[in-house]
C-alpha cells in the first residue's frame, strides 16, 4: 500500500538494515553470535501477558510469588503465541496472514542478507563509501575481521 506519508528524505540505511521492526520481527533486541542471528522480542504474546498479569496479581495478593518464578509454570496459549508487532520470526517463519495472496514477510535468506549489510554499516555508513557503492546484488563481500565472525 501507499500510506500517503511521503517525505523527500528516505529512511536511513540503518533504519532498515539494523532495525528488527523494519524486518517484521517486531520490537526487541537483535544480536549476532558467531554468525547466527538471535532475536529477543520486547513484547509478550497478548494472551500470555494478560493471563500472567492476572495470575501475578492473584498470587502476589496471596503472597505466593512473583512474575519471575511464575512464568516457567504458566501454560502457553495456543494462539497467538507471538508479540502482536511480529510478522515473522528470526528463522523466517511467517506468523501472520496478509490481505493479499502474494504478499509475505521476509524469509530467512532475505533476513540474513539484510542484516549482513547492517553489520558492515557500522563502518561503511552509506553509498559514499566504496564498499557500499560497489556492492552488487548477490555478490556480498566476505565478512572482514571487524565483523567478528
Amino acid at each position: 500500500m501507499d500510506p500517503h506519508s511521503t517525505s523527500a528524505k528516505g529512511r536511513t540505511c540503518h533504519d532498515c538494515h539494523q532495525n528488527p521492526r523494519a524486518l517484521g520481527l517486531g520490537a526487541g533486541n537483535l544480536w549476532n553470535d558467531n554468525g547466527t542471528w538471535h532475536f529477543s522480542a520486547a513484547g509478550m504474546a497478548p494472551e500470555v501477558a494478560v493471563s500472567e498479569t492476572l495470575s501475578l496479581l492473584s498470587r502476589q495478593a496471596r503472597g505466593l510469588g512473583t512474575l519471575n518464578n511464575m512464568s516457567q509454570n504458566t501454560p502457553k496459549p495456543s494462539s497467538p503465541n507471538h508479540p502482536l508487532d511480529a510478522f515473522v520470526d528470526i528463522d523466517g517463519n511467517a506468523l501472520v496472514h496478509t490481505s493479499r495472496k502474494d504478499l509475505r514477510p521476509f524469509n530467512k535468506k532475505e533476513i540474513d542478507r539484510i542484516l549482513y549489510v547492517g553489520i558492515c554499516l557500522t563502518c561503511h555508513r552509506d553509498f559514499k563509501d566504496p564498499v557500499m557503492k560497489n556492492w552488487r546484488p548477490g555478490h556480498a563481500p566476505r565478512p572482514c575481521k571487524n565483523a567478528r565472525f
Binding site: R21, D102, P105, F106
Partner: peptide, 28 residues
C-alpha cells in the same frame, strides 16, 4: 485494538502480476 503505532513500518515482499517481487510496506 491492542495498540497503535506510527513509526518504522515493517517491510515485506509482494509478488506482482509480472512475477517480479518487490519490497513493500506491511501495515496491520
Amino acid at each position: 485494538r491492542s495498540f497503535m503505532r506510527f513509526e518504522s513500518p515493517a517491510l515485506g515482499v509482494l509478488r506482482g502480476k509480472d512475477a517480479r517481487e518487490r519490497i513493500v510496506l506491511l501495515v496491520p
